[in-house]
Design a protein around this nucleic acid. Structure first.
Lengths: 272, 272
DNA sequence: TGAATAGTGTCTGTGAGACAATATTAT
DNA sequence: ATAATATTGTCTCACAGACACTATTCA
């Protein structure tokens, strides 16, 4: 069949000639939450956290998964992600970044479903806790070596562990090929999405200002430092941290008082 | 309807209940090519290049686009990308990295087609020039400021220009929102894919060893430096470049001779 | 010999790592 | 007074930018 114009071609086009598939948007929502301290002198401990949803239907009934849903046929993928954020967690206007597209043909037992994953960051204090009843924040702990990552997720009631193997994809970059080794509580291939997101965040926190998406408007440098530390999983030296961060924040005349120790100035993110 | 087991649920599952869409894999193949010099003393000029394919069918008949194709219903997306590389350019075993998933509902006039884009890097000398007859390498020139990127592509016969607007997505990272401003020779939203890929490569070349995927096994430091320069679009200082690169390469006892100037040692990529 | 590229030496300033020291609060 | 955190000072070392200098080849 021969066409003489684009219009003519489109008119005759039959969309059913290729087998089609379903697309979902799945969202890793990260935040840092406070654990209230019992010692009046000590600061609240901070935890790196992810929001998971309990599955109430098959497949993977009663396991946990990332908030997500199908992308409508006439809906932009990022718009779908925003809609899901609104529906599942009543969140809007937060940091949202496309992470990776997972498309293993067997990743969903129902049929071929390709998942476009997103990473979202939020200051947990801004959440009016209107997250849906089947959603819950889990503290993230990592135990990592060259070959494996052991992830422990804890929401205060339930503790979930899974293990992911990692190997370098090739030798010129630090991209890893992940593989689920142990898991029975997280649905689909979401363990892979979680570790990919954690890696991405750990990298980006070092060379961008991304961390300020998880901070309230006013914060102390100690609080900011502890957010870095809990995400990077290591202690930082105070003077070095302050030097590096100093040109990203501006001091205000407000102070945080009340702890059994020297009060600290509140700072604010300074856009360049 | 209530199910009592995962098996039972899957057996009853009807895949047709959601509207489905088509998925393509599109590949940005970058390389650096030599332009033979007429002055016996001077080195060959290097050009940053991308492989494009002429569309022989509607839609966008007679324009150029990235090599790509539909992902089969039971095919992994990256496998599809590899299959396309093999079919269109007879290339295998090269650097391949998922770039971004483009899913604007109107990006294809036929129907809803979501595109997962990949970036591939190759040493052009390794190509046995068995690229398909409708494919062609285009030299890339960039003219960039805060707001816009003007891209000029030249394959020796044909010159293509397009302009893309850029604006920061948000203030904490350097992620840009791109928008096609002028274009009539590149199909679909592929101008966006091209500029996204160039940005990614420019970034990654600075903090990874990714560049060695575009180099032959043996090369001089001058050649390597000129590859960096042509991708970054700026001159580098020799001593600084040599210092930075020195722990990534190893000197061999081979030499490149024949130019009207001091011969240089050949080096090789050194894996850590 | 001269054009062109290859390769080294060195000065300077920036900035991170490390550790020490001082400051300030609530109980 | 003391525990705990806040904040600053300073020494050292690694390294990038800048520029000058030497080395080597072929027509």
């Amino acid at each position: 069949m021969k066409f003489h114009s684009e219009e003519e071609f489109l008119k005759a086009y039959d969309p059913s000639q290729f087998e089609r598939l379903s697309l979902t948007a799945d969202i890793l929502i990260f935040s840092v939450s406070d654990e209230v301290s019992d010692n009046y002198r000590k600061l609240n401990k901070k935890h790196f956290s992810v929001l998971l949803v309990k599955r109430e239907n098959y497949p993977f009934k009663d396991t946990w998964c990332l908030p997500g849903g199908f992308v409508a046929i006439d809906e932009d993928i990022e718009d779908a992600a925003k809609r899901i954020l609104k529906d599942e967690a009543n969140i809007s206007d937060i940091y949202l970044e496309q992470l990776y597209t997972f498309g293993n043909p067997k990743r969903d037992p129902r049929m071929r479903i390709v998942s476009v994953s997103y990473m979202a960051l939020i200051d947990k204090n801004k959440l009016d806790s209107k997250i849906s009843s089947n959603a819950s924040w889990f503290h993230i702990s990592l135990l990592e070596d060259d070959k494996e990552i052991l992830v422990t997720l804890d929401n205060g009631i339930d503790t979930i562990k899974f293990k992911v193997g990692k190997s370098l994809k090739e030798k010129t970059t630090d991209r890893y090929q992940f593989k689920v080794l142990e898991n029975d509580r997280i649905a689909f291939d979401h363990p892979l999405v979680i570790v990919s997101g954690i890696e991405r965040l750990k990298n980006k926190i070092a060379y961008t200002d991304i961390v300020f998406n998880m901070m309230p408007e006013y914060f102390t440098l100690g609080e900011l430092q502890r957010v870095y530390e809990v995400i990077l999983g290591k202690k930082l030296l105070d003077p070095a941290f302050r030097r590096i961060i100093s040109n990203k924040v501006e001091k205000t005349d407000k102070m945080r008082t009340g702890g059994g120790h020297r009060p600290s100035y509140l700072f604010r993110y300074k856009t360049k």
